[in-house]
Computed example of a mutant assay.
Amino acid sequence: LYAFVAGQNLDEFRSNVDSAINRAIMPSKLVATPDSQSVTLSWLKSISPDVIAYKIYRSKISGDGYTLIGQTETNTYIDTSVQKGSLSYYVVSGVTIDGRESKYSNEVASAPGVPPKSPSNLIIKLDQSGKPLLQWSKADDNEVVGYKIFRNSTGSAPWTAIATVDKTTQSFIDVNTYDGNTYYYTIASINVYNWVSEFSNIVSIKLKPPFIESASSLKDVKTVPQPCSSKVKFINLTGMATIKVYTIDGKLVKTIHHTNNTGEEEWNLLNDSGVPLTSGIYIYHISAFKPEETDKFVTSGKIVIVR
């Protein structure tokens, strides 16, 4: 084990040495995976070659009251003595060849049991504002405490969890969608031990492309002021459109979804990462679908930023 430590005085130096050694022998990234009868723990081994074993602790309360339940030379441990349906908290420590024990790893909570039953009869339609509205039948399971809503653009794994609602809720409106896109959804039940059920049936919906009134409307788009320093406003837009801003050499730096059904969109001159753009000339490209949904109106122009 090699480490570089320093301090203002001898006590601080010794403290820094102890801290460096502890970090080297402490296990990390503890994960708990329950099944119907037990909880399997796994973690990343300590980086120090002096560590020869790991101690596993369990408690009924978070952050305190840990009791030693086992020791292993590997980086996995199966707790078969844990009470079924009872939430337990776990930590792990590293033990060196000379008996030194590290501080505890991160804490995880888990409980053995059976996953909750799934919700059923998931359906989808548009609400009054044109956003996807999900509705379902609740799971026939008294231990269910809520439902997770998942979404993606393919209809197959992986799925992204976009919301969690309580057990009394049987509908959800997805307001974070954009016209012209297709979205797939599924939901799952969760219980008090954070077990997640199997997914429900999958539903999908294709949102209509943005509607604009005439082909000439995008031709009148302007940006004010020009040049600009802190913000710029696009005027004479259609009700809905997509604005993309590029550097002079063609690198996309900002995508703006104009969905407010007005003719204006203000931009604070930050890129997609939230970083202010530097002075220079940028190219904007604006597109919007025709009512027939088969073609687009497009226009482009320049934005001059002077900081």
Rank of each mutant, 00 (worst) to 15 (best):
E143I: 05
G94S: 09
G94Y: 02
S86R: 04
N152E: 13
N75M: 05
S110I: 02
P116L: 00
V145F: 09
G146Q: 12
A161Y: 05
G85T: 05
Q83P: 09
S120R: 07
A157Q: 09
K131I: 00
E143C: 02
K138I: 13
D127I: 08
V95R: 14
I162F: 04
T74E: 13
L87C: 02
G113K: 05
Y77H: 12
S120I: 09
Q135F: 03
G146C: 14
A109F: 05
A111P: 07
A111Y: 02
N106F: 06
L126M: 11
T96M: 07
D140P: 02
Y89K: 01
V91L: 05
R151H: 08
G146P: 11
G146E: 01
I149S: 11
G85Q: 08
G155R: 00
K84L: 11
A157V: 09
P119S: 14
V114C: 08
F150D: 08
S110D: 14
Q135H: 03
A111T: 00
L126T: 02
P158H: 13
W159R: 10
E101I: 12
Y90N: 01
S120Y: 05
P119H: 06
A109T: 00
T160L: 06
D141V: 02
Y104S: 11
P115C: 07
L126Y: 13
